[in-house]
């Protein structure tokens, strides 16, 4: 990592902390996928990575390139905005698909539908 030699110390420390926080949250979310007991519990696990996890890695990347190139590098914001918009949609779709499938099989674990369909 020779390109990072002339990065000031405070920026290097801050980028390191943000990277470790983000990657740690991503890992905890993935461990949650393994440890939690049923699908509806596991749906909660990836949100750790998709909110604060990717957020802090994006912040680290923005800070790193902005300080290194001495000009604002902000395009990481796009991934952030995109993640914020898409994660709820995918998780809701998945939760609804799972509910639908479980109800079709007459599972006792999920509450009955109030709308009458599905």
């Amino acid at each position: 990592m020779t390109h990072a030699e002339n990065l000031p110390g405070w920026a290097a420390i801050l980028v390191s902390l943000l990277l470790l926080l983000g990657a740690g949250l991503g890992l905890v979310g993935a461990i949650g996928l393994l440890r939690l007991r049923n699908f509806y519990e596991r749906v909660h696990a990836p949100t750790l990575g998709t909110t604060l996890g990717i957020g802090s890695i994006l912040l680290a990347s923005m800070l790193f390139f902005t300080v290194l190139q001495a000009r604002p590098v902000l395009h990481e914001v796009l991934i952030g905005v995109f993640m914020v918009l898409t994660t709820p949609v995918t998780l809701m779709l998945l939760a609804r698909a799972a509910l639908y499938r479980d109800r079709r099989e007459g599972s006792a674990e999920v509450p009955r539908s109030t709308t009458g369909e599905g």
Partner: peptide
């Protein structure tokens, strides 16, 4: 509301009954 609840870890919006 659905996006806020789903994006916060710990809660997931599963269904909405618009009639009631």
């Amino acid at each position: 509301l659905a996006c806020i609840l789903t994006a916060t870890p710990g809660t997931v919006w599963a269904e909405y009954d618009s009639a009631r």
